[in-house]
């Protein structure tokens, strides 16, 4: 990942990298939006605090990644242009972060899948040929490592807690697991960037992710789900029906005041 590319090739990579950064930014933004929905409703005050802390980090990641997208694609769009002025079909987050998670166990299951993926990805992106993306990834990997620990701890607590918590945890895992494969999807964009050394290949990440989450679930006495189907489409802007209301809520105030400054 060290070769310097110049000229039109560089521009092509920048445009592709912009789309890649926006995908990750959308993942962070939509997941933060979901966690915001927990705050004041969490099972303990400690969890209100923990989930708001995690959401705060994720909004920070989204801001960096979306702004980077706007610089790299040459449009000069700001983080807020991406967040508040795109339509549903223009968001490219993975479906994992947008599906309703049902209950706290569903949230924990989603956090388990997302955080293990994000730490592995960001650690690998620290070696990206793009210096801004690499610098961001170094910082973000450290933050998400805390979120991963929070998720792991809850998976184990709920898995080994009571019969009800174990049942809910199994149901939560079943609910979100069909959406995990999409995190490692290797479409033309990813293949091109991988070949250019700008981003890591998803295959090896997926293998490590699988080993890690399987180990956590084993500690928690929970079965690793083996879904018979895999959701896909988020990276192409093909979302679930739940996504429209989420975006409407996210953008409502911003869109009510055209030309507003905040």
């Amino acid at each position: 990942m060290t070769e310097t590319v110049t000229g039109p090739a560089r521009q092509g990579t920048d445009a592709a990298l912009a789309r890649y950064a926006v995908r990750l930014g959308d993942d962070a933004l939509v997941l933060a939006q979901q966690l915001c929905g927990w705050i004041t409703r969490a099972p303990t005050i400690e969890e209100d605090l923990a989930l708001s802390n995690i959401a705060l980090d994720l909004v920070g990641h989204a801001r960096t990644l979306l702004a980077l997208g706007g610089r790299l694609d040459g449009t000069g769009r700001t983080e807020d242009d991406f967040a508040f002025l795109r339509t549903e079909r223009e968001f490219t987050n993975a479906l994992l972060v947008e599906i309703p998670d049902g209950d706290f166990a569903g949230t924990v299951a989603r956090q388990l899948a997302y955080t293990h993926h994000a730490v592995l990805l960001y650690e690998a992106l620290a070696a990206s040929t793009d210096p801004e993306l690499a610098a961001f990834a170094v910082r973000a990997a450290k933050e998400v490592a805390y979120h991963r620990r929070h998720a792991d701890d809850w998976v184990v607590r709920l898995g080994l807690g009571t019969a009800e918590s174990a049942r809910r945890m199994r149901a939560g895992l079943e609910r979100v697991w069909p959406c995990t494969a999409e995190l490692f999807e290797e479409d033309a964009l990813v293949r091109g960037l991988t070949a250019a050394g700008a981003v890591p290949a998803p295959g090896p990440l997926r293998e490590r992710w699988h080993e890690e989450v399987a180990a956590v679930l084993k500690r928690a006495g929970l079965p690793l789900p083996a879904p018979k189907w895999h959701a896909t489409g988020g990276r192409d802007g093909l979302h679930t029906e739940a996504f429209g209301p989420l975006v409407a809520e996210l953008q409502s105030v911003h869109r009510q005041f055209p030309g507003g400054t905040w």
Binding site: A55, R63, F257, W262
Partner: peptide, 29 residues
């Protein structure tokens, strides 16, 4: 935390969303 927390999902800029999250988090603390 409730009157402000209800606006977390609707904060009109990502900067304001961060600020409000930090504030609500402080209140829990």
């Amino acid at each position: 935390m409730q009157p402000e927390g209800a606006w977390l999902t609707r904060a009109p800029s990502l900067h304001r969303k961060s600020v409000l999250l930090a504030k609500v988090q402080d209140e829990a603390g």
